[in-house]
Design a binder for these strands. Structure first.
Length: 926
RNA sequence: GGGCGAUUGGCUCAGUGGUUAGAGCACGCGGUUCACAUCCGCGGGGUCACUGGUUCGAAUCCAGUAUCGCCCACCA
């Protein structure tokens, strides 16, 4: 294997030598950066890296990430995205797939300009004062700073992305893809330039797409205004005849070109076709009939301003009305030819209303709840207005996207988002891609003095006008740039070399899974899908995985303005990257929002610490008979030497592999996390290690037995660390390095093999569980009776003969874990316990404990009373369950219709409960 | 106006038809056992939002209602 980019043997040694002792405390900061350096040095991130170690014949696994905006620091949402993607990639890598996770950053044109505008404002500068060229220079300086910060943050989180392929949506590869794709769309008639009503943000001074307009509820005013009818003979407005219109935007009166009423509205039937005079502009316009008018709303008559309202625009088009623009780019009144020209839209509104009132034409004004469109970026009220801009025709693209999801070529996780997807793509409008901004890809369209359009995919532009052949020198390029999502939409293939026919493109397109938050399903996912199918001829990914949003502990969306942001870096500093990743995964499910709190971080930190200490114990517990040399190679525990506890430990590990595999199949990483937390903590540590301690400490056993116990612990721990690696990569890598490895293991866990589901659980599995229940029962009885934890009690344990083998093997463990000195007997030899003893029932096993202190006879009154109480409680529970089981069995419809296995189970249960009930009664002397 | 989601112990969440609904945190009691007090043991705590239906059996399936949240939408 090549080692030009770093040796494959060094890194492991840098982590820790196998068998070496671990420091007493786990300090993530001491481990994480060192581990990351090891991965980098081993060159394992690239699918074809020197240490990538993928299995021949395995399909590449390609994860597509939303490149974060290059505007500054990462937030928790990014951390969640990166964590999920990293989990997927690490899992696939361990399964032997060549994995491609191509990292990148988005130039975020409008968002970046918004941020930069604020920064330069602090220096007293503006976009205009700098000019296009200097502004863009300033932008490059800015993003060159943020870039490194952001990439550093991604690494600290553990992202195992292929940094050698880092891309940026403003690099030349993206630029070329933008030009070529747009040229193609233009040639196909899918990109066109037209004057249309667009969403104008007066603050950002650009148009924005429908998606960037946030409908915001607001209490406005609904004014009722009289438009006087024009006398048909004199041509003068009639002071006594008018039609009253209702409006929330009086300033648009200046652009009115009609008044509409409902065609079947008897109140206005006679007025249709008449003229009314628009105040201030003294324009006579027609009263028209159109079914869009809601008769019940306002006065039932609507003023029509086709150049400044979406509905009115449609109405205007239907009726061939003139469309008068009366607002400038800065949202001041402009071109109305009135005294209001130059006034801000709201100032003009105020004055207009005042004057109307003075004229006696203001009939009324009342508060009105309404929805206002505001700019997603600047929060300015969006102004619909006419502009000549570039659009992408979406219907055919949307149709093939729908085909891809309906046909299952691309699936969406969780599936409920398919409905949203369907609805949006079915009702999609053409996409306005022009932006009147500077930071972004310039639209590759040139215009000649005769108005001909030439679109070119060449970096220098067209040599001459495509239509009339005028030379390039006479052409001018469109000053606008593309919507930032246009280049993002090309991401899955522009990053692989498209439009060139590259090896990367052939090998890694389409991607396996595209992972992102559901909040950008339209902005980004749908656009990638539409453009990918059309331009790269295949849906860009096979699976869409959508995660939920990270909210603050009260369920509020995190935002800078609310001040409830959690900085992922701070979290990592405090508790480690593994803890953060754990916190982001544990207790979550696909597509569902999560509330993030510091408690969850602590859970993760505690868990990492637990793993650390468990491993530390295992390393320190190695039997002396295994010397350092032997301990450097992992051995399988000798099957002949396995006791019930060892079999149990191995069986639990095997069951965990199966459960985790199932969780991955279901794309449920929260479930995988939960399963592993429980398996390692509540099973492996609480029982596996505790049981093993007994045997490891038993000098009377042959070396081979103790060795088997230790190898069992090592084997299970090895499995758990592998399973946990995608979730908590740093601590698992560090710990795994210190464990003995198998012959064919690589140096680093990151490229170690994912565990395979082992053989079926050992036959003793269920019996061991009964013993654990017994131990718990004894502990409970002791605690309830108030017996000092340290005191050893004499216990006689009874169990059916078939359990005798396991029981005697585990007797020392029972004694240690339950603090008893036990004697075993056959269950058949049962007789009522002498009074004053504690009775413990655990399924088929029972125990009788003597609570008396070693030197004094008989239990105290208090202990006896508490014991009686406990037994009564237990009896009540058993009895309730027994009654339930009996009534179920007494129901013939149950016994007839329920599956045989269920009925059989109920019978067995009934028998068991009856037996327990009887024993408890006997014990209580009832 | 349409659609989606949530509603389970004090809190955060699992659990999609089958015995006794789970976990972590918080809470109470007890613990310096030689991996871990970022820990260990034990315990209390839920009529699974409500109503009706399907079923031998419902937190789980169906219908409806309520509350909260989100998305989409051209009543000025």
């Amino acid at each position: 294997m090549s080692s030009e980019r770093g040796t494959t043997s060094e890194p492991g040694r840098n982590v820790a030598a196998p068998g070496s002792q671990l420091p007493k405390a786990y300090v993530p900061a001491d481990v994480e950066s060192r581990i990351y350096e090891c991965w980098l040095a081993a060159d394992v991130f690239a699918p074809d890296g020197a240490g990538a170690n993928s299995e021949p014949g395995k399909e590449p696994f390609v994860v597509i990430q939303p490149p974060p905006n290059i505007t500054g620091a990462l937030h928790l949402g990014h951390a969640l995205t990166l964590t999920l993607e990293d989990v997927m990639v690490r899992h696939a890598r361990m399964e032997g797939h060549p994995t491609l996770w191509l990292p990148g950053l988005d130039h975020a044109s409008i968002a970046a300009q918004y941020v930069l505008d604020k920064i330069i404002a602090a220096d007293g500068e503006t976009r205009e004062s700098l000019g296009r060229e200097r502004y863009l220079e300033r932008m490059w300086t800015f993003i060159n700073e943020t870039r490194e910060v952001m990439l550093g943050q991604e690494r600290r989180l553990g992202a195992s992305a292929d940094w050698s392929r880092l891309r940026f949506t403003m690099d030349e590869g993206s630029a070329k893809a933008v030009r070529v794709s747009f040229k193609q769309l233009f040639d196909e008639g899918l990109a066109y330039r037209t004057e249309a009503l667009i969403n104008w943000c007066p603050g950002c001074r650009t148009s924005v797409s429908d998606l960037e307009v946030i409908p915001t509820p607001e209490t406005g005013t609904l004014w009722t205004i009289r438009y006087h009818l024009v006398n048909e003979t004199t041509g003068a407005p009639d002071p006594d005849a008018w039609i009253a219109v209702a409006t929330t935007r009086p300033e648009t009166i200046l652009g009115d070109t009609a008044v509409a009423v409902h065609p079947e509205d008897d109140r206005y039937r006679d007025l249709v076709g008449r003229k009314v005079r628009i105040p201030f502009v003294d324009r006579d316009v027609s009263v028209i009939a159109d079914a869009v008018v809601e008769r019940a709303f306002g006065t039932g008559a609507v003023k029509i301003t086709p150049a400044h309202d979406k509905d009115d625009h449609q109405t205007g088009k239907r009726h061939g009305l003139p469309m008068l623009t009366i607002l400038g780019d800065d949202a001041t009144i402009s071109g109305s030819g009135t005294e209001f020209d130059g006034l801000d839209r709201y100032e003009a509104r105020k004055r207009l209303v005042g004057e109307l009132e003075a004229m006696g034409d203001l009939e009324g004004a009342r508060p009105h709840e309404m929805i206002l469109g505001r700019c997603q970026r600047s929060n300015d009220v969006i102004e619909p207005r006419l502009k000549t801009q570039w659009f992408v025709k979406t219907e055919p693209l949307a149709a093939s996207s729908l085909e891809a999801t309906r046909g299952g070529r691309t699936t969406i996780v969780p599936t409920r988002f398919e409905k949203t997807w369907e609805h949006w793509l079915t009702n999609i409008h053409d996409w306005n891609v022009s932006r009147q901004l500077w930071w972004g890809h310039r639209i590759p369209a040139w215009y000649c003095p005769d108005g001909h359009v030439s679109v070119s995919s060449e970096i220098e532009g067209p040599a001459a006008c495509d239509t009339c052949g005028r030379p390039a020198s006479e052409l001018t390029q469109d000053p606008d740039i593309f919507d930032t999502w246009y280049s993002s939409g090309l991401w899955p293939f522009s990053t692989l070399g498209w439009p060139d026919d590259t090896d990367d493109f052939r090998r890694y397109y389409p991607g396996t899974v595209m992972e992102t938050g559901y909040d950008i399903i339209f902005f980004w996912v749908a656009r990638m899908m539409m453009l990918g199918i059309h331009l790269a001829e295949k849906p860009p990914f096979r699976k869409v995985y959508l995660h939920g949003l990270v909210k603050d502990p009260t369920g509020q969306k995190m935002s800078k303005s609310k001040g409830n942001i959690v900085d992922p870096l701070e979290a990592i500093d405090q508790t480690g990257a593994d803890a953060l990743r754990f916190a982001l995964l544990n207790g979550t499910s696909p597509g569902n929002d999560q509330k993030f709190s510091s408690e969850r971080l602590e859970d993760g930190r505690n868990f990492a610490n637990k793993l650390w200490n468990a491993t530390r114990f295992v390393l320190g517990a190695r039997p002396a008979s295994i010397d350092d040399a032997r301990a450097s190679r992992r051995e399988s525990p000798d099957p002949a030497q396995l006791g019930p506890a060892e079999q149990w430990v191995l069986a639990r590990a095997a069951a965990t592999v199966a459960a985790v595999d199932r969780a991955y199949e279901d794309d449920n990483f929260g479930e995988a996390t939960r399963v592993l937390y429980d398996a390692t903590w509540s099973q492996y540590c609480d029982w596996g290690i505790e049981l093993a301690k007994v045997r490891l400490a038993d000098g009377s056993l042959p070396d081979a037995a103790r060795e088997a116990t230790w190898w069992s612990l090592v084997s299970a721990l090895d499995t758990y660390l592998r399973l946990l690696h995608p979730i908590m990569p740093f601590v698992t890598e560090a710990l795994w390095a210190s464990l003995p490895h198998a012959e064919d293991d690589p140096e680093l866990l990151i490229v170690a093999r994912w565990p395979r589901v082992g053989k079926a659980a050992a036959a003793t599995d269920g019996v061991v569980d009964e013993v654990l229940t017994l131990i718990r029962g004894i502990r409970n009885a002791r605690a309830e009776a108030g017996i000092e934890p340290g005191r050893r009690l004499a216990a006689s344990i009874r169990a059916p003969a078939e359990m005798a083998g396991v029981l005697s093997a585990l007797q020392p463990a029972i004694d240690r874990l339950a603090r008893v000195d036990s004697s075993l007997s056959d269950a058949a030899a049962t007789e009522a316990d002498p009074s004053g003893r504690l009775a413990v029932l655990a399924g088929r096993v029972s125990a009788s404990l003597d609570p008396a202190a070693g030197d004094s006879a008989g239990a105290s009154e208090e202990v006896a009373a508490r014991e009686r109480q406990r037994l009564e409680k237990e009896l009540a529970e058993v009895q309730a369950r027994l009654d339930g089981a009996r009534s179920r069995l007494a129901n013939p419809r149950f016994t007839e219709r329920a599956p045989a296995a269920i009925v059989e189970g109920a019978r067995k249960l009934e028998a068991e409960l009856a037996e327990q009930s009887a024993r408890l009664r006997a014990q209580l002397g009832a």
